[in-house]
Design a protein around this nucleic acid. Structure first.
Lengths: 228, 228
DNA sequence: CGACGTAGGTCTACACCGTAGACCTTGCCA
DNA sequence: TGGCAAGGTCTACGGTGTAGACCTACGTCG
Protein backbone atom coordinates (compact mmCIF):
# COMPACT_ATOMS: atom_id res chain seq x y z
CA UNK A 1 0.00 0.00 0.00
CA UNK A 2 1.63 3.22 -1.14
CA UNK A 3 2.20 5.64 1.66
CA UNK A 4 1.52 9.32 1.02
CA UNK A 5 4.60 11.46 0.54
CA UNK A 6 5.44 13.44 3.66
CA UNK A 7 4.76 16.75 2.02
CA UNK A 8 1.19 17.74 1.33
CA UNK A 9 -0.25 14.66 2.91
CA UNK A 10 -3.87 15.42 3.48
CA UNK A 11 -4.71 17.50 0.48
CA UNK A 12 -5.01 14.28 -1.48
CA UNK A 13 -8.26 13.35 0.23
CA UNK A 14 -10.97 14.17 -2.30
CA UNK A 15 -13.49 15.63 0.15
CA UNK A 16 -11.01 17.98 1.71
CA UNK A 17 -11.37 21.67 1.23
CA UNK A 18 -8.93 23.64 -0.87
CA UNK A 19 -8.88 27.09 -2.35
CA UNK A 20 -9.15 25.66 -5.84
CA UNK A 21 -12.22 23.59 -4.96
CA UNK A 22 -13.87 26.53 -3.22
CA UNK A 23 -13.25 28.86 -6.13
CA UNK A 24 -14.44 26.30 -8.67
CA UNK A 25 -17.64 25.73 -6.71
CA UNK A 26 -18.19 29.48 -6.40
CA UNK A 27 -17.81 29.88 -10.16
CA UNK A 28 -20.28 27.08 -10.79
CA UNK A 29 -22.69 28.58 -8.30
CA UNK A 30 -22.47 32.00 -9.94
CA UNK A 31 -22.96 30.43 -13.35
CA UNK A 32 -26.06 28.59 -12.19
CA UNK A 33 -27.79 31.04 -9.85
CA UNK A 34 -26.12 34.38 -10.49
CA UNK A 35 -23.51 36.32 -8.61
CA UNK A 36 -25.88 37.38 -5.86
CA UNK A 37 -26.35 33.74 -4.94
CA UNK A 38 -22.68 33.46 -4.05
CA UNK A 39 -22.75 33.85 -0.29
CA UNK A 40 -20.43 32.14 2.15
CA UNK A 41 -23.33 30.18 3.61
CA UNK A 42 -24.76 28.96 0.31
CA UNK A 43 -21.31 28.14 -0.95
CA UNK A 44 -20.58 26.20 2.25
CA UNK A 45 -23.76 24.12 2.06
CA UNK A 46 -22.91 23.31 -1.53
CA UNK A 47 -19.52 22.12 -0.36
CA UNK A 48 -21.06 20.22 2.55
CA UNK A 49 -19.08 22.22 5.04
CA UNK A 50 -19.41 24.87 7.69
CA UNK A 51 -19.39 28.43 6.35
CA UNK A 52 -16.46 29.40 8.52
CA UNK A 53 -14.32 26.61 7.12
CA UNK A 54 -14.00 28.55 3.92
CA UNK A 55 -12.03 31.20 5.74
CA UNK A 56 -9.22 28.73 6.24
CA UNK A 57 -8.50 28.95 2.53
CA UNK A 58 -9.68 32.41 1.59
CA UNK A 59 -8.95 35.66 3.37
CA UNK A 60 -12.42 37.10 2.99
CA UNK A 61 -15.16 37.40 0.43
CA UNK A 62 -13.17 39.87 -1.62
CA UNK A 63 -10.38 37.36 -1.88
CA UNK A 64 -12.90 34.79 -3.05
CA UNK A 65 -14.16 37.13 -5.77
CA UNK A 66 -10.57 37.79 -6.82
CA UNK A 67 -10.09 34.08 -7.15
CA UNK A 68 -13.25 33.67 -9.21
CA UNK A 69 -12.25 36.44 -11.59
CA UNK A 70 -8.78 35.06 -12.03
CA UNK A 71 -10.18 31.58 -12.61
CA UNK A 72 -12.19 32.87 -15.55
CA UNK A 73 -9.16 34.63 -17.02
CA UNK A 74 -7.04 31.52 -16.50
CA UNK A 75 -9.33 29.62 -18.86
CA UNK A 76 -8.55 31.91 -21.80
CA UNK A 77 -6.71 29.86 -24.37
CA UNK A 78 -3.54 31.53 -25.61
CA UNK A 79 -3.04 31.90 -29.34
CA UNK A 80 -0.15 30.58 -31.33
CA UNK A 81 2.03 33.30 -32.85
CA UNK A 82 0.83 33.77 -36.39
CA UNK A 83 2.32 35.21 -39.54
CA UNK A 84 -0.67 37.42 -40.08
CA UNK A 85 0.59 40.43 -38.20
CA UNK A 86 0.18 41.77 -34.72
CA UNK A 87 -3.33 43.11 -35.24
CA UNK A 88 -4.76 39.78 -36.28
CA UNK A 89 -2.91 37.99 -33.52
CA UNK A 90 -4.11 40.37 -30.81
CA UNK A 91 -7.60 40.31 -32.23
CA UNK A 92 -7.67 36.53 -31.98
CA UNK A 93 -6.48 36.59 -28.39
CA UNK A 94 -8.98 39.21 -27.33
CA UNK A 95 -11.87 37.45 -29.04
CA UNK A 96 -10.79 34.29 -27.28
CA UNK A 97 -10.94 36.18 -24.01
CA UNK A 98 -14.37 37.42 -24.92
CA UNK A 99 -15.59 33.90 -25.59
CA UNK A 100 -14.47 32.81 -22.16
CA UNK A 101 -15.99 35.81 -20.49
CA UNK A 102 -19.34 35.33 -22.19
CA UNK A 103 -19.45 31.87 -20.66
CA UNK A 104 -19.60 33.55 -17.27
CA UNK A 105 -21.83 36.59 -17.58
CA UNK A 106 -21.14 37.68 -14.02
CA UNK A 107 -17.40 37.94 -14.61
CA UNK A 108 -17.54 41.37 -16.20
CA UNK A 109 -19.02 42.94 -13.11
CA UNK A 110 -16.62 41.30 -10.68
CA UNK A 111 -13.53 41.87 -12.81
CA UNK A 112 -14.60 45.47 -13.11
CA UNK A 113 -14.98 45.97 -9.41
CA UNK A 114 -11.82 44.24 -8.18
CA UNK A 115 -8.74 46.41 -7.90
CA UNK A 116 -5.86 43.95 -7.85
CA UNK A 117 -5.17 41.67 -10.80
CA UNK A 118 -4.52 38.00 -10.08
CA UNK A 119 -1.70 35.96 -11.56
CA UNK A 120 -3.71 34.68 -14.52
CA UNK A 121 -4.79 38.20 -15.36
CA UNK A 122 -1.21 39.41 -15.20
CA UNK A 123 -0.18 36.60 -17.51
CA UNK A 124 -2.89 37.59 -19.94
CA UNK A 125 -1.79 41.23 -19.89
CA UNK A 126 1.77 40.09 -20.47
CA UNK A 127 0.65 38.18 -23.55
CA UNK A 128 -1.16 41.23 -24.85
CA UNK A 129 1.90 43.40 -24.27
CA UNK A 130 4.08 40.79 -25.91
CA UNK A 131 2.01 40.92 -29.07
CA UNK A 132 2.06 44.70 -29.11
CA UNK A 133 5.81 44.92 -28.58
CA UNK A 134 6.43 42.14 -31.05
CA UNK A 135 4.40 44.09 -33.57
CA UNK A 136 6.81 46.96 -33.33
CA UNK A 137 4.92 49.28 -31.02
CA UNK A 138 7.10 51.34 -28.75
CA UNK A 139 6.84 50.87 -25.02
CA UNK A 140 4.97 54.15 -24.72
CA UNK A 141 2.51 53.25 -27.44
CA UNK A 142 1.98 49.80 -25.94
CA UNK A 143 1.21 51.51 -22.67
CA UNK A 144 -1.26 53.77 -24.41
CA UNK A 145 -2.76 50.72 -26.07
CA UNK A 146 -3.55 49.14 -22.72
CA UNK A 147 -5.43 52.26 -21.74
CA UNK A 148 -7.33 52.57 -24.98
CA UNK A 149 -8.33 48.94 -24.98
CA UNK A 150 -9.13 49.05 -21.28
CA UNK A 151 -11.07 46.07 -20.09
CA UNK A 152 -11.81 45.24 -23.71
CA UNK A 153 -8.60 43.27 -23.38
CA UNK A 154 -10.64 40.78 -21.40
CA UNK A 155 -13.56 40.81 -23.81
CA UNK A 156 -15.83 43.25 -22.05
CA UNK A 157 -18.44 45.23 -23.86
CA UNK A 158 -17.97 48.30 -21.74
CA UNK A 159 -21.38 49.29 -22.96
CA UNK A 160 -23.22 52.09 -21.30
CA UNK A 161 -25.67 49.74 -19.62
CA UNK A 162 -26.17 46.07 -19.10
CA UNK A 163 -27.08 44.57 -22.41
CA UNK A 164 -28.94 41.77 -20.75
CA UNK A 165 -32.29 40.53 -21.92
CA UNK A 166 -32.48 42.13 -25.35
CA UNK A 167 -34.82 39.50 -26.72
CA UNK A 168 -37.75 39.64 -24.35
CA UNK A 169 -38.80 43.18 -25.14
CA UNK A 170 -41.84 43.84 -27.30
CA UNK A 171 -40.83 45.73 -30.47
CA UNK A 172 -44.16 47.52 -30.53
CA UNK A 173 -43.55 48.70 -26.98
CA UNK A 174 -40.09 49.98 -27.86
CA UNK A 175 -41.50 51.80 -30.87
CA UNK A 176 -44.17 53.45 -28.73
CA UNK A 177 -41.58 54.60 -26.25
CA UNK A 178 -39.33 55.88 -29.01
CA UNK A 179 -42.20 57.97 -30.37
CA UNK A 180 -42.78 59.35 -26.90
CA UNK A 181 -39.11 60.29 -26.76
CA UNK A 182 -39.16 62.05 -30.10
CA UNK A 183 -40.02 65.57 -28.89
CA UNK A 184 -37.35 65.80 -26.19
CA UNK A 185 -34.83 63.19 -27.32
CA UNK A 186 -34.96 63.32 -31.10
CA UNK A 187 -31.70 61.53 -31.78
CA UNK A 188 -32.27 58.78 -29.26
CA UNK A 189 -35.72 58.27 -30.70
CA UNK A 190 -34.37 58.17 -34.23
CA UNK A 191 -31.84 55.54 -33.30
CA UNK A 192 -34.30 53.46 -31.31
CA UNK A 193 -36.80 53.47 -34.14
CA UNK A 194 -34.19 52.58 -36.73
CA UNK A 195 -32.71 49.79 -34.63
CA UNK A 196 -36.13 48.45 -33.83
CA UNK A 197 -37.93 48.74 -37.14
CA UNK A 198 -35.31 46.76 -38.98
CA UNK A 199 -35.27 49.77 -41.22
CA UNK A 200 -31.69 50.88 -41.41
CA UNK A 201 -30.23 48.82 -38.64
CA UNK A 202 -30.87 45.26 -37.70
CA UNK A 203 -31.22 44.24 -34.10
CA UNK A 204 -28.17 45.42 -32.22
CA UNK A 205 -25.45 42.85 -32.86
CA UNK A 206 -23.28 42.98 -29.76
CA UNK A 207 -20.61 40.75 -31.17
CA UNK A 208 -20.40 42.77 -34.35
CA UNK A 209 -20.16 45.96 -32.35
CA UNK A 210 -17.36 44.52 -30.28
CA UNK A 211 -15.39 43.61 -33.39
CA UNK A 212 -16.02 46.99 -34.96
CA UNK A 213 -14.70 48.76 -31.89
CA UNK A 214 -11.73 46.46 -31.63
CA UNK A 215 -10.78 46.94 -35.28
CA UNK A 216 -11.15 50.68 -35.06
CA UNK A 217 -8.84 50.81 -32.07
CA UNK A 218 -6.27 48.44 -33.52
CA UNK A 219 -6.23 50.42 -36.77
CA UNK A 220 -5.72 53.61 -34.82
CA UNK A 221 -2.80 52.08 -32.95
CA UNK A 222 -1.26 50.78 -36.15
CA UNK A 223 -1.40 54.29 -37.55
CA UNK A 224 0.57 55.50 -34.53
CA UNK A 225 3.18 52.78 -34.80
CA UNK A 226 6.65 54.15 -35.29
CA UNK A 227 5.27 57.67 -35.09
CA UNK A 228 5.28 58.12 -31.32
CA UNK B 1 -50.66 85.60 5.00
CA UNK B 2 -50.26 83.81 1.71
CA UNK B 3 -52.03 80.51 1.61
CA UNK B 4 -50.30 77.59 -0.10
CA UNK B 5 -51.60 76.72 -3.54
CA UNK B 6 -53.90 73.72 -3.46
CA UNK B 7 -51.60 71.56 -5.51
CA UNK B 8 -48.45 70.26 -3.93
CA UNK B 9 -49.17 71.83 -0.62
CA UNK B 10 -46.88 70.18 1.84
CA UNK B 11 -43.76 69.69 -0.17
CA UNK B 12 -42.91 73.30 0.52
CA UNK B 13 -42.02 72.55 4.13
CA UNK B 14 -38.23 72.48 4.24
CA UNK B 15 -37.86 69.51 6.57
CA UNK B 16 -40.18 67.33 4.56
CA UNK B 17 -38.83 64.39 2.69
CA UNK B 18 -38.70 64.31 -1.04
CA UNK B 19 -37.01 62.13 -3.60
CA UNK B 20 -34.72 64.98 -4.55
CA UNK B 21 -33.62 65.59 -0.97
CA UNK B 22 -33.05 61.88 -0.38
CA UNK B 23 -30.99 61.47 -3.53
CA UNK B 24 -28.96 64.60 -2.80
CA UNK B 25 -28.19 63.36 0.70
CA UNK B 26 -27.25 59.95 -0.61
CA UNK B 27 -24.84 61.52 -3.08
CA UNK B 28 -23.27 63.62 -0.35
CA UNK B 29 -23.00 60.57 1.89
CA UNK B 30 -21.30 58.56 -0.85
CA UNK B 31 -18.94 61.44 -1.55
CA UNK B 32 -17.97 61.67 2.10
CA UNK B 33 -17.87 58.06 3.30
CA UNK B 34 -17.90 55.98 0.15
CA UNK B 35 -20.59 54.03 -1.60
CA UNK B 36 -20.62 51.24 0.97
CA UNK B 37 -21.69 53.74 3.60
CA UNK B 38 -24.91 54.40 1.72
CA UNK B 39 -27.39 52.23 3.57
CA UNK B 40 -31.02 53.01 4.16
CA UNK B 41 -30.41 53.23 7.88
CA UNK B 42 -27.41 55.57 7.72
CA UNK B 43 -29.13 57.68 5.11
CA UNK B 44 -32.22 57.91 7.28
CA UNK B 45 -30.33 59.01 10.38
CA UNK B 46 -28.61 61.65 8.29
CA UNK B 47 -32.01 62.86 7.20
CA UNK B 48 -33.34 62.68 10.75
CA UNK B 49 -36.01 60.26 9.77
CA UNK B 50 -37.07 56.64 10.09
CA UNK B 51 -35.42 54.31 7.57
CA UNK B 52 -38.75 53.13 6.27
CA UNK B 53 -39.85 56.65 5.45
CA UNK B 54 -37.46 56.66 2.54
CA UNK B 55 -39.55 54.00 0.87
CA UNK B 56 -42.35 56.49 0.45
CA UNK B 57 -40.23 58.28 -2.15
CA UNK B 58 -38.04 55.55 -3.57
CA UNK B 59 -39.11 52.10 -4.71
CA UNK B 60 -36.13 50.29 -3.29
CA UNK B 61 -32.40 50.65 -2.95
CA UNK B 62 -31.85 50.01 -6.63
CA UNK B 63 -34.13 52.90 -7.42
CA UNK B 64 -32.11 55.06 -5.06
CA UNK B 65 -28.88 54.12 -6.83
CA UNK B 66 -30.49 54.91 -10.16
CA UNK B 67 -31.39 58.31 -8.82
CA UNK B 68 -27.86 58.92 -7.58
CA UNK B 69 -26.34 57.98 -10.91
CA UNK B 70 -28.72 60.16 -12.83
CA UNK B 71 -28.09 63.05 -10.46
CA UNK B 72 -24.39 62.94 -11.30
CA UNK B 73 -25.11 62.87 -15.01
CA UNK B 74 -27.59 65.71 -14.65
CA UNK B 75 -24.79 67.95 -13.40
CA UNK B 76 -22.82 67.65 -16.63
CA UNK B 77 -22.77 71.06 -18.23
CA UNK B 78 -23.77 70.97 -21.91
CA UNK B 79 -21.45 72.60 -24.41
CA UNK B 80 -22.38 75.34 -26.81
CA UNK B 81 -22.25 74.31 -30.45
CA UNK B 82 -18.86 75.38 -31.74
CA UNK B 83 -17.44 76.07 -35.17
CA UNK B 84 -14.49 73.81 -34.51
CA UNK B 85 -16.01 70.63 -35.87
CA UNK B 86 -17.83 67.70 -34.39
CA UNK B 87 -14.74 66.04 -32.91
CA UNK B 88 -13.76 69.04 -30.84
CA UNK B 89 -17.33 69.59 -29.76
CA UNK B 90 -17.84 65.99 -28.66
CA UNK B 91 -14.47 65.96 -26.99
CA UNK B 92 -15.41 68.99 -24.95
CA UNK B 93 -18.69 67.43 -23.88
CA UNK B 94 -17.13 64.14 -22.88
CA UNK B 95 -14.33 65.82 -20.95
CA UNK B 96 -16.98 67.85 -19.20
CA UNK B 97 -18.71 64.61 -18.29
CA UNK B 98 -15.42 63.24 -17.05
CA UNK B 99 -14.90 66.25 -14.82
CA UNK B 100 -18.27 65.72 -13.22
CA UNK B 101 -17.72 62.02 -12.80
CA UNK B 102 -14.32 62.50 -11.15
CA UNK B 103 -16.07 64.64 -8.56
CA UNK B 104 -17.94 61.51 -7.48
CA UNK B 105 -15.52 58.59 -7.64
CA UNK B 106 -18.24 56.08 -6.76
CA UNK B 107 -20.36 57.03 -9.74
CA UNK B 108 -18.43 54.88 -12.22
CA UNK B 109 -19.21 51.72 -10.35
CA UNK B 110 -22.89 52.46 -9.86
CA UNK B 111 -23.43 53.72 -13.41
CA UNK B 112 -21.72 50.60 -14.62
CA UNK B 113 -23.91 48.28 -12.62
CA UNK B 114 -27.31 49.83 -13.25
CA UNK B 115 -29.17 48.57 -16.29
CA UNK B 116 -31.72 51.27 -17.03
CA UNK B 117 -30.63 54.79 -17.93
CA UNK B 118 -32.37 57.66 -16.17
CA UNK B 119 -33.75 60.76 -17.87
CA UNK B 120 -30.58 62.83 -17.45
CA UNK B 121 -28.50 60.03 -18.89
CA UNK B 122 -30.82 59.75 -21.86
CA UNK B 123 -30.56 63.47 -22.41
CA UNK B 124 -26.79 63.23 -22.33
CA UNK B 125 -26.79 60.39 -24.85
CA UNK B 126 -29.10 62.43 -27.04
CA UNK B 127 -26.63 65.32 -26.98
CA UNK B 128 -23.81 62.98 -27.94
CA UNK B 129 -25.85 61.56 -30.79
CA UNK B 130 -26.80 65.05 -31.87
CA UNK B 131 -23.18 66.05 -32.20
CA UNK B 132 -22.34 62.90 -34.14
CA UNK B 133 -25.26 63.28 -36.52
CA UNK B 134 -24.60 66.98 -36.88
CA UNK B 135 -21.03 66.14 -37.82
CA UNK B 136 -22.24 64.15 -40.76
CA UNK B 137 -22.01 60.64 -39.38
CA UNK B 138 -24.62 58.26 -40.68
CA UNK B 139 -27.11 56.75 -38.29
CA UNK B 140 -25.29 53.44 -38.46
CA UNK B 141 -21.92 54.98 -37.77
CA UNK B 142 -23.35 57.03 -34.92
CA UNK B 143 -24.68 53.80 -33.49
CA UNK B 144 -21.26 52.20 -33.85
CA UNK B 145 -19.76 55.25 -32.20
CA UNK B 146 -21.87 54.74 -29.10
CA UNK B 147 -20.56 51.22 -28.82
CA UNK B 148 -16.94 52.13 -29.41
CA UNK B 149 -17.05 54.96 -26.92
CA UNK B 150 -19.03 52.86 -24.47
CA UNK B 151 -19.17 54.36 -21.03
CA UNK B 152 -16.35 56.66 -22.03
CA UNK B 153 -19.23 58.87 -23.09
CA UNK B 154 -19.73 59.51 -19.41
CA UNK B 155 -16.06 60.05 -18.70
CA UNK B 156 -15.15 56.61 -17.40
CA UNK B 157 -11.64 55.28 -17.54
CA UNK B 158 -12.74 51.74 -18.27
CA UNK B 159 -9.32 50.77 -17.11
CA UNK B 160 -8.56 47.18 -16.35
CA UNK B 161 -8.51 47.82 -12.63
CA UNK B 162 -9.34 50.55 -10.21
CA UNK B 163 -6.77 53.26 -10.58
CA UNK B 164 -7.25 54.38 -7.03
CA UNK B 165 -4.40 55.27 -4.73
CA UNK B 166 -1.55 55.58 -7.21
CA UNK B 167 0.42 57.98 -5.04
CA UNK B 168 0.84 56.03 -1.84
CA UNK B 169 2.89 53.19 -3.30
CA UNK B 170 6.60 53.01 -2.69
CA UNK B 171 8.52 53.23 -5.99
CA UNK B 172 11.25 51.00 -4.63
CA UNK B 173 8.65 48.40 -3.76
CA UNK B 174 7.16 48.54 -7.23
CA UNK B 175 10.60 48.17 -8.75
CA UNK B 176 11.32 45.15 -6.59
CA UNK B 177 8.09 43.52 -7.62
CA UNK B 178 8.75 44.31 -11.27
CA UNK B 179 12.12 42.59 -11.06
CA UNK B 180 10.43 39.59 -9.47
CA UNK B 181 8.02 39.53 -12.39
CA UNK B 182 10.73 39.70 -15.01
CA UNK B 183 11.28 35.94 -15.50
CA UNK B 184 7.63 35.01 -16.03
CA UNK B 185 6.08 38.31 -17.07
CA UNK B 186 8.81 40.06 -19.03
CA UNK B 187 6.61 42.61 -20.76
CA UNK B 188 4.67 43.55 -17.67
CA UNK B 189 7.94 43.93 -15.81
CA UNK B 190 9.40 46.07 -18.58
CA UNK B 191 6.42 48.37 -18.51
CA UNK B 192 6.30 48.59 -14.75
CA UNK B 193 10.01 49.43 -14.54
CA UNK B 194 9.77 52.03 -17.27
CA UNK B 195 6.71 53.68 -15.79
CA UNK B 196 8.25 53.65 -12.36
CA UNK B 197 11.81 54.64 -13.03
CA UNK B 198 10.84 57.81 -14.82
CA UNK B 199 13.03 56.40 -17.55
CA UNK B 200 10.89 56.35 -20.63
CA UNK B 201 7.51 57.02 -19.13
CA UNK B 202 6.53 59.37 -16.39
CA UNK B 203 4.04 58.36 -13.77
CA UNK B 204 0.90 57.11 -15.46
CA UNK B 205 -1.14 60.18 -16.38
CA UNK B 206 -4.73 59.02 -16.26
CA UNK B 207 -6.12 62.16 -17.74
CA UNK B 208 -3.62 62.11 -20.58
CA UNK B 209 -4.46 58.49 -21.27
CA UNK B 210 -8.14 59.30 -21.37
CA UNK B 211 -7.58 62.04 -23.93
CA UNK B 212 -5.31 59.84 -26.02
CA UNK B 213 -7.93 57.11 -26.14
CA UNK B 214 -10.69 59.59 -26.90
CA UNK B 215 -8.74 61.21 -29.74
CA UNK B 216 -7.79 57.87 -31.21
CA UNK B 217 -11.42 56.79 -31.27
CA UNK B 218 -12.74 60.08 -32.63
CA UNK B 219 -10.11 60.03 -35.38
CA UNK B 220 -11.07 56.50 -36.28
CA UNK B 221 -14.72 57.50 -36.50
CA UNK B 222 -13.90 60.52 -38.63
CA UNK B 223 -12.05 58.25 -41.02
CA UNK B 224 -15.21 56.15 -41.35
CA UNK B 225 -17.44 59.16 -41.94
CA UNK B 226 -19.21 59.02 -45.25
CA UNK B 227 -17.58 55.68 -45.93
CA UNK B 228 -20.04 53.40 -44.15
C1' DC C 1 6.15 5.37 21.81
C1' DG C 2 4.10 9.45 23.64
C1' DA C 3 3.87 14.50 24.03
C1' DC C 4 3.23 18.50 21.42
C1' DG C 5 2.22 21.99 17.97
C1' DT C 6 -0.53 23.19 14.55
C1' DA C 7 -3.62 23.17 10.46
C1' DG C 8 -8.07 23.16 9.64
C1' DG C 9 -13.08 22.20 10.58
C1' DT C 10 -16.99 23.81 13.70
C1' DC C 11 -19.94 26.48 16.74
C1' DT C 12 -21.79 30.56 18.58
C1' DA C 13 -22.56 35.20 18.33
C1' DC C 14 -22.55 40.02 16.66
C1' DA C 15 -23.55 43.85 13.94
C1' DC C 16 -25.52 45.13 10.01
C1' DC C 17 -28.36 44.93 5.91
C1' DG C 18 -32.98 45.56 2.85
C1' DT C 19 -37.66 45.68 3.39
C1' DA C 20 -42.71 43.59 4.26
C1' DG C 21 -46.72 44.74 6.90
C1' DA C 22 -49.40 46.93 10.40
C1' DC C 23 -50.14 51.20 12.67
C1' DC C 24 -50.86 56.05 13.38
C1' DT C 25 -50.89 60.98 12.51
C1' DT C 26 -51.93 64.80 9.66
C1' DG C 27 -54.21 67.81 6.59
C1' DC C 28 -57.33 68.16 2.64
C1' DC C 29 -61.80 67.90 0.37
C1' DA C 30 -66.75 66.74 -0.18
C1' DT D 1 -67.93 66.90 10.06
C1' DG D 2 -66.69 62.59 8.20
C1' DG D 3 -63.79 60.29 5.45
C1' DC D 4 -59.82 59.60 2.77
C1' DA D 5 -55.32 59.26 1.38
C1' DA D 6 -50.38 60.50 1.79
C1' DG D 7 -46.69 59.74 4.31
C1' DG D 8 -44.05 58.98 8.67
C1' DT D 9 -43.14 55.20 12.22
C1' DC D 10 -42.61 50.73 14.51
C1' DT D 11 -41.69 45.99 14.75
C1' DA D 12 -39.93 42.07 12.88
C1' DC D 13 -37.92 38.67 9.55
C1' DG D 14 -34.55 36.53 7.01
C1' DG D 15 -30.44 37.31 5.12
C1' DT D 16 -25.33 38.85 5.10
C1' DG D 17 -19.92 38.76 6.34
C1' DT D 18 -16.98 37.40 9.82
C1' DA D 19 -14.58 37.62 14.74
C1' DG D 20 -13.31 34.51 18.37
C1' DA D 21 -13.35 30.39 21.06
C1' DC D 22 -13.33 25.57 20.68
C1' DC D 23 -12.14 21.01 19.26
C1' DT D 24 -10.15 17.29 16.68
C1' DA D 25 -6.83 14.88 14.01
C1' DC D 26 -2.44 14.54 12.24
C1' DG D 27 2.77 14.97 11.38
C1' DT D 28 6.95 15.77 13.90
C1' DC D 29 10.25 15.13 17.19
C1' DG D 30 12.32 14.04 21.80
Amino acid sequence: MPRRPPTEPRTAAPDRLSRARIVADAVALADRDGLDAVSMRKLATGLGVDPMSIYNHVRDKGDLLDGMADAVVAAIEPVAPAETGWQAELSTLILSARREMLRHPWSASVLGSRSQPGPATLTHVDRVLGILRGGGLSLELAHHALHVLGSRILGFDESLFDDTAPADVDPALVAAQARAWAPTLPHVAELALAANHDGVLGACDDDGEFRFALDLILDGLERHRGRV
